[in-house]
Design a protein around this nucleic acid. Structure first.
Lengths: 344, 344
DNA sequence: GTGAAAGCGCTAACAC
DNA sequence: GTGTTAGCGCTTTCAC
């Protein structure tokens, strides 16, 4: 399967490799001058006849651009990841960029082995990540989603969840005295991640005690979240409300409740975090807090960055809102609790 | 951000580029001879100090191998796609191959622009695909999932659903006289895809009439499937059983039923196709038909093919079984209806 | 044990 | 209008 090269095509068309390169790049050469229609036609014909397709690696080495965008998505099954993929897929279409997903892989190990014009990283929060990212950004164009990092050679995408998480907790504690939390096991570290901290703060604001038995943790994906929720809801004194630190966990909690024949929201109210389309579309629709315009904003920024790698690193912030839906209230209102506007 | 090259490292370590290449490849040079420990140490130190990382494009152009596996997954949100991703992620780990997902994109357009050591294509059935794949396989190593294509320069992965789909329909028609079908809109073409044909055949075998109003179609993903199922189940004379041509559609149908306060399986029984982990884990667990050992078998084969691109194209077939679970029967049995063994 | 050098396929000055 | 040519960063043969 000896692949035809630009040389083969040049020979076949009876022109030089340079001409082939120019013709196939669709460029008119030099200024003022161009390539004759006759030559162009011959080259195209030869290329088609031979089944020629440019070697991307060779092009990349020469131009320094791969026209690749890499999305490192740590948990692909998370609806959040799927939303990112979908939004990016739409945004890149016209830009000649191909988005590739690096799934369920630790970017800390994988990035050094790959390259792309721009790399999006969806989880950077571990100790040491700041240094590692600064180091990697010397040789890669990085866009990092993080609620805590500051730009340092790389861009930071941030969604300001702060007071909307508080609003979510207040929404629950206003009517419930047994509010549980469903969160990844890693959340219990100190200092607590912002989403979990909001749970602790919310209880305190409401003057409610912290009960360890109301904190359910899980490792990994929705199946484990589901099992954790089943256990939580099967306990002797089950919660009447669940604050889940992600939409997918909240969705798993609702499925768990339905499995146990508990009515949502009557027997148990559920709120998520992230405001995903999946939560919005499920039944009952999921009350959640999330950034507005986040996915399309992220996608547009990634495309912009892929095309202009050298402009100074930026920070992009998205305001969050609490969106009340059927999983916490029977009478869906169009009420939003708008966050102060912090878009920049 | 001038990236250090092998040259930079060579200068820093006071050796030649060839030596650097050998040291960093971890190879002992020539036969018998080797690289002195001292030199090796100096090179490694220099590489670390400079933050050197090999340019993959340059390596690819030289060796003809990218160590990349491309998974073209047409509908990423489909649990089937996630299972493929997960299985492959596990299988490649030790082989030094990085799997990249090309999501929600038409491979017919995208493949010519990219390259990888091996490319997996998950939907090839359109007219003209056979020719296009044969053409592409001249310059790519392809593994194609298809129930109809034959190997032709590329490998074919096939799951033999045939009689297990019949078993699924027989399972429904044995107890139901209003069996609906939930399937993508594209299925209605002639000739009918095998999964939809099995519905038609099943009705006929049972001597039941075909009722157009019991065929619900949808475009795209689970949200649309969900809506189609809601409509179907809200109709004046709703079905008492649904044959969905995929697990994700079946899962959407169960959610739709739950939304409408219909009990599964009492008010409506549901079977899926594909036997995904999501269907197995949901509540009620989903009766489905699917290949056994498919995902791990596919993943292993992809890795094998990535490492040995030149052995003759193969066809890999996986037998299907009907797995009875809670979405069609109240007393989950461990009964399997084993397909005749056709594994090769 | 190590270095020199060729060349992978492509692009972009520059020459004519 | 088109051809020549110098590399991009890397691997690998061959010479020392």
């Amino acid at each position: 399967m000896n692949r035809p090269t630009i040389k083969t095509v040049a020979a076949e068309a009876g022109v030089s490799t340079a001409t082939v390169s120019y013709v196939l790049a669709g460029r008119t050469r030099g200024q003022g001058s161009g390539i004759s229609n006759e030559t162009s036609r011959r080259v195209h014909e030869a290329a088609v006849r031979l089944g020629y397709r440019a070697n991307q690696a060779a092009r990349a080495i020469r131009t320094g651009r791969s026209n690749l965008m890499m999305l490192s998505l740590t948990m692909l099954s998370d609806p959040w990841s799927l939303s990112v993929s979908r939004a990016v897929g739409g945004a890149v279409a016209s830009a000649g960029i191909t988005p590739m997903i690096l799934a369920d892989t630790d970017w800390r190990l994988a990035i050094p082995r790959q390259s792309a014009d721009v790399i999006f990283i969806d989880d950077a929060g571990r100790p040491g990540d700041a240094e590692l990212l600064a180091e990697l950004s010397r040789t890669n164009t990085l866009v990092v989603f993080s609620e805590t990092l500051e730009p340092d050679g790389y861009d930071v995408i941030r969604s300001l969840s702060g007071s909307s998480l508080d609003a979510a907790m207040d929404h629950l504690t206003a009517e419930h005295t047994r509010v549980a939390c469903l969160t990844p096991a890693g959340s219990l570290r100190t200092p607590a991640p912002i989403r979990y901290q909001a749970y602790l703060d919310g209880l305190e604001r409401a003057g409610q005690p912290f009960r360890p038995e109301l904190v359910a943790t899980f490792d990994g994906d929705e199946l484990n979240a589901y099992q954790a929720a089943v256990e939580l809801l099967s306990s002797p004194e089950p919660p009447t409300a669940i604050y889940a630190t992600s939409d997918f966990a909240a969705i798993a909690a609702i499925h768990a409740a339905q499995r146990l024949r508990l009515a949502v929201p009557d027997d148990v109210a559920v709120v998520g975090v992230g405001n995903t389309i999946q939560g919005e579309a499920m039944a009952p629709s999921l009350t959640s807090t999330g950034p507005v315009g986040f996915f399309s904003g992220l996608a547009d920024f990634l495309v912009e960055r892929a095309q202009d790698p050298d402009s100074p690193p930026r920070i992009l912030e998205f305001p969050w809102q609490l969106l009340l839906r059927d999983s916490t209230t029977h009478h869906p209102q169009d009420l939003l609790y708008p966050e102060r506007e912090v878009m920049k």
